[in-house]
Design a protein around this nucleic acid. Structure first.
Lengths: 351, 351
DNA sequence: GCCGAGTGTCGAAGCGCTTCGACGACGGGT
DNA sequence: ACCCGTCGTCGAAGCGCTTCGACACTCGGC
């Protein structure tokens, strides 16, 4: 036993590589980082040794010395009313693009609260943060401001100064839906929005969509009602039946809630209203989902991939101390399916 | 300017705490880790300084010195046919319980492949791995074996020796569903399983459920057919209609696919078969989902929370060098809803 | 009154990496 | 022939933490 040595980790270290290649440790480091010129000969010799020994730099040591962990945090919502598949799509998009920038992703849930963010950021476990599902008046915003680490929000709080935010332009999305219906001659439409709880906590995308719908309706002389919409079949049924009882002339529906689409279809069928003959339906939902319903939905997809990618790019820019725009809103794109058609002459004799 | 010093990070270090509390650095460390006895007086003085300075240990330094990153990797599937909400539930359960063990979670997607796992593990970014959606003959299994880091699989590969696996006992789940139907007097049942692609790649849970269904059926003298089931409405409709055309006597349905439940209900309605009067339906799906359908489903939930928690516990045990069982199968629990009832006298005059 | 077994604390040696300054070797301008 | 700038490499100093051995003390037992 040689004194107080601990057991070696087993993994080869940069010193092993240096020894094997017959160069200094720092040279190996520079080969890896490219921060100084290295002759082609040395370079290839070092790389060969690295491959041969199966060397992987120790993340902790690297983080300690360089003050960069090459890890970003992804703060996901765990709340009710979130659109699970969309969130999942975000997450994978974020992981994939982060890897493309040579970063890994640490998964946080908001339920550890501000303390969690603080712990992570202060402990230098991550270099920057990506925060999803931001509310209009989000308590985490001031925290992010003085966390001392770059961050990007997915979503748009009421006050975005000094922050970096990315999102779909939900207001435009709402407008686009209504404009599509208006063009088809619909004069009375309704928005089946997010669950009431989502509006209550002031989640941006729900409010902005509603605002867009109402604004576009007003502009085009369309009568519009907006109501929240829960995700379970029974409740959807009740709401939709009630809606048509009150407003029998409605011929256009904008559905914001992927989970509600199925029940809405079923309810319309039960009410004897066919899609798109009697009622046209536009949904805000993933393309993949829309393609699998019958009839195929006319929809405005939430481009989770793009948003995720964009968010990562912006965060990387900030990590590199480059300036980043405060607000990036991606333009919505409406894809016409088979669930919308020209408005029929109003037939008030419908049941 | 004092020579070659770099800019200090801004965060207080353990040395700052030690100085402030008037003790040695090592004493602070021992207060934090509890690995040596510290007098109550010193202890509280140190803790006060920590709080006052807002000290958070640097994760990199800690990882480097202790050879433990206090981070585990969660390897999520990104494939088609996965049950997104269930995966999400897993993920959150894992994050939450990991935090309870003072660990964070690094999110990996399998699409970086084995190289990704290797990079992470060799670089000591994580102490252990949690791998989801394991296939019967999963290519990652041999890799995990010689990765040199503890791992726990969620799912059950064909050969589980030397591994640690957690899952719902899907075989029993299948049995329980059939037994429930058999007890109610059903004599012809069908399993609408996972999408064909899921069987093709040999995903354990799908195969095991099918085996359980068929075995229980045989044992109870029930006639059973099992068929894969895609997730889009049109396809479901085709399959189900075809099924009843071929086997008009079927009165019991086991549906394994949350996404298929809605379309199945719609199809049955379209075929003029009422639930549960004409057809009883048992689903393998989350409780929350089952509660929101009408009628409320009889179901065997996948206890994603429990599985996730259990997986983390096992991984922690392995990280502490304690032995862990190779296979942990959680017993399924059937909850009776309103979608199953006693089999009606066979009425072959049905359309 | 002395020994041995704790207790509580300290100092120092790393953990594996990055980065800074230094320095020899070379080459082009004058 | 000389100086200077550039290129390629090296050595060493940390980064902030854990952990080991050492070293006072205190206390009970004989």
């Amino acid at each position: 036993m040689s004194g107080r040595g601990r057991v070696p980790s087993g993994q080869p270290t940069i010193a092993d590589v240096a020894r094997h290649a017959g160069v200094a440790v720092s040279t190996v480091s520079y080969v890896l980082s490219g921060k100084r010129a290295i002759s082609e000969m040395t370079r290839s010799r070092v790389l060969a040794s690295i491959r041969l020994l199966g060397y992987h730099p120790n993340a902790g040591a690297r983080a300690l010395a360089s003050r960069r962990a090459n890890v970003i945090a992804l703060v996901l919502p765990l709340r009710s009313g979130i659109q699970v598949p969309v969130v999942m799509q975000f997450a994978t998009a974020v992981v994939t693009s982060a890897r493309r920038h040579d970063h890994d992703v640490l998964l946080l849930t908001s339920d550890e609260g501000p303390a969690g963010l603080h712990r992570i950021a202060a402990g230098a476990l991550v270099d920057g943060l990506l925060v999803m599902d931001v509310e209009l008046h989000d308590g985490r915003v001031p925290l992010l401001r003085d966390l001392g680490r770059p961050s990007v929000l997915i979503g748009l709080p009421a006050e975005s100064r000094g922050l970096t935010c990315v999102d779909l332009d939900f207001e435009r999305a709402g407008q686009v839906c209504v404009e599509h219906l208006a063009t088809l001659g619909h004069r009375r439409v309704a928005l089946l929005g997010a669950p009431a709880a989502v509006y209550d906590r002031g989640t941006g995308f729900a409010h902005r969509t509603r605002a867009g719908v109402l604004a576009a309706a007003a502009r085009h002389g369309v009568h519009a009602v907006a109501l929240p919409c829960e995700e379970n079949a029974a409740e959807v049924h009740r709401r939709v039946a009630d809606l048509f009882a009150r407003h029998p002339g409605i011929t256009g529906l904008v559905v914001q809630n992927e989970a509600a689409v199925g029940p809405v279809q079923a309810t319309l069928a039960a009410l004897g209203r066919r899609i798109p003959r009697d009622v046209s339906v536009v949904a805000v939902c993933p393309d993949q989902f829309a393609e699998h319903t019958s009839p195929r939905l006319t929809r405005v997809p939430v481009p989770a991939d793009q948003i995720g990618q964009q968010a990562v790019s912006l965060l990387m820019r900030k990590l590199g101390d480059e300036p980043a725009p405060e607000v990036t809103l991606l333009p919505p794109r409406l894809t016409v399916g088979d669930s919308t058609a020209a408005a029929a002459t109003v037939d008030t004799s419908l049941p």
